[in-house]
């Protein structure tokens, strides 16, 4: 429970951090009702994802998304539901990056905002979580 709680706090911290982007002047802290809704959706889902980050089933990808890294650690019947969780999380993340760019009146900044988030997700990941290094290979933090 404590683990879950600390993961949630981590996520909240990350989502509320002011981040610097390559797109000079982008306000990643910007909030709109749609961004708030997406963040809430991700925070709610994080409780279900945290144990899979820790087990190594799911890893953080280099493009600010998540992916199934090693399905072997999951019972067979859980692999498809975890796939569905990953797909839903990635839909939210893609929408979040796009919404932040749009709220800054620069939809074309989406790529830079995604890259910044990707770096932050990895830098704030807990020890033992897996992430995709610059060369595309999986690495354990």
């Amino acid at each position: 429970m404590n683990k879950l709680f600390s993961c949630l706090i981590l996520l909240v911290i990350l989502l509320s951090l002011p981040l610097a982007t390559h797109a000079r002047g982008a306000n990643i802290e910007i909030n709109t009702p749609a961004i708030t809704k997406l963040k809430q959706s991700m925070q709610q889902r994080h409780g279900q994802l945290a144990s899979h980050y820790a087990s190594g089933a799911i890893g953080l990808t280099g493009d600010g998304l998540i992916a199934m890294r090693d399905a072997n650690v999951l019972p067979l019947a859980q692999r498809q539901p975890v796939n569905a969780l990953i797909a839903a999380e990635n839909q939210d993340r893609n929408a979040l990056y796009q919404e932040i760019a749009s709220a800054n009146n620069h939809p074309e900044w989406e790529k830079d905002i995604r890259a910044t988030f990707s770096q932050r997700w990895i830098s704030l990941a807990k020890s033992g979580w897996w992430y995709q290094a610059a060369n595309g290979a999986w690495a354990k933090k």
């Binding site: 199934m68 890294r69 090693d70 399905a71 072997n72 650690v73 067979l76 692999r79």
Partner: peptide, 11 residues
């Protein structure tokens, strides 16, 4: 059976 990543597996 299973492949290395567990993406094609049966029990």
């Amino acid at each position: 059976f299973s492949d290395r990543n567990g993406l094609r597996a049966g029990e």
